Computed example of a mutant assay.
Amino acid sequence: MSGIASHRASPGARAWRGFRGWRRTRPFWGGLFVLLGGAEILFTVWAPLGVVLHVGMQNFIGYLVPYVIILLGVLLWFNPAQRIFYSLIAMICALGSFLTSNMGGFVVGLLFTLVGAALAFAWAPEDPPPAPEPVAEPESAAPAPASPPSAEDPSGVRRVAAPQEQDQNTLPPEEQWRSEPPAWNAPGPGPKHAE
């Protein structure tokens, strides 16, 4: 079996990599906590308990607020550009669920929603890596003179030698970077003064 075929990823591994890439481009954990908080509040409203509290408009608002919170959790996943607006509305709905939906799902759903909305509010997309800067060609690099066709080259095509490139991270040879001292500092006879 060839080396390429033996290193192919299974469909499950490719799906997991795709999910990880999708998850990193949005406030995934914030949306998940908001969604779980809304679901917990909704289940406490549906609960057939004798201790279920009904405050305010008993049926309409008590069911509407958790549905809105669940919708906001889904919108945080699929429309991350509006995450700040969705997270603020989720916080307001979570605080409102304390009055309308069994003390915010007996406080558990309220806390889940508030934590998720705070995570979504604080999330920021990663900056793309900076593009590599193009390497500038040195101005003094001139092509080498062309050599005349030689006897070894029967085609008669002129060959041009490639210019020698120097690594940009090394110093030039010693002769190139040392300069001569200026003329006014040079030793020798100075100007003649009149006596």
Rank of each mutant, 00 (worst) to 15 (best):
M1F: 05
G3I: 12
I4S: 14
A5E: 05
A9I: 03
P11G: 08
G12H: 15
W16D: 15
R17T: 11
F19D: 00
R20F: 14
G31E: 01
L32F: 01
V34H: 03
L42S: 02
T44G: 10
G50R: 04
H54L: 13
H54C: 11
V55R: 12
G56W: 03
M57A: 13
N59T: 11
N59D: 12
F60G: 11
F60I: 10
I61D: 12
L64Q: 00
V68G: 02
L71H: 00
L75P: 00
F78K: 00
N79H: 10
P80H: 01
R83C: 03
Y86H: 08
L88G: 05
C93I: 09
S97L: 08
F98T: 14
S101H: 00
N102M: 07
G104V: 06
F112L: 08
T113V: 04
T113Y: 10
A120W: 00
F121Q: 00
W123T: 02
W123V: 02
P125N: 01
P125G: 01
P129H: 01
P129T: 01
P130V: 10
E133L: 06
A136L: 13
E139I: 12
S140E: 11
S140L: 12
S140P: 11
P143I: 01
P145Q: 03
S147R: 15
P149H: 10
P154S: 05
S155V: 02
G156S: 06
R159Y: 07
A161N: 11
A161T: 13
Q164G: 12
E165F: 12
Q166G: 09
Q166H: 09
D167N: 15
Q168A: 13
Q168W: 14
T170K: 15
L171G: 08
P173E: 07
E175P: 02
W177R: 05
S179R: 10
P189H: 06
P189M: 05
E195Y: 08
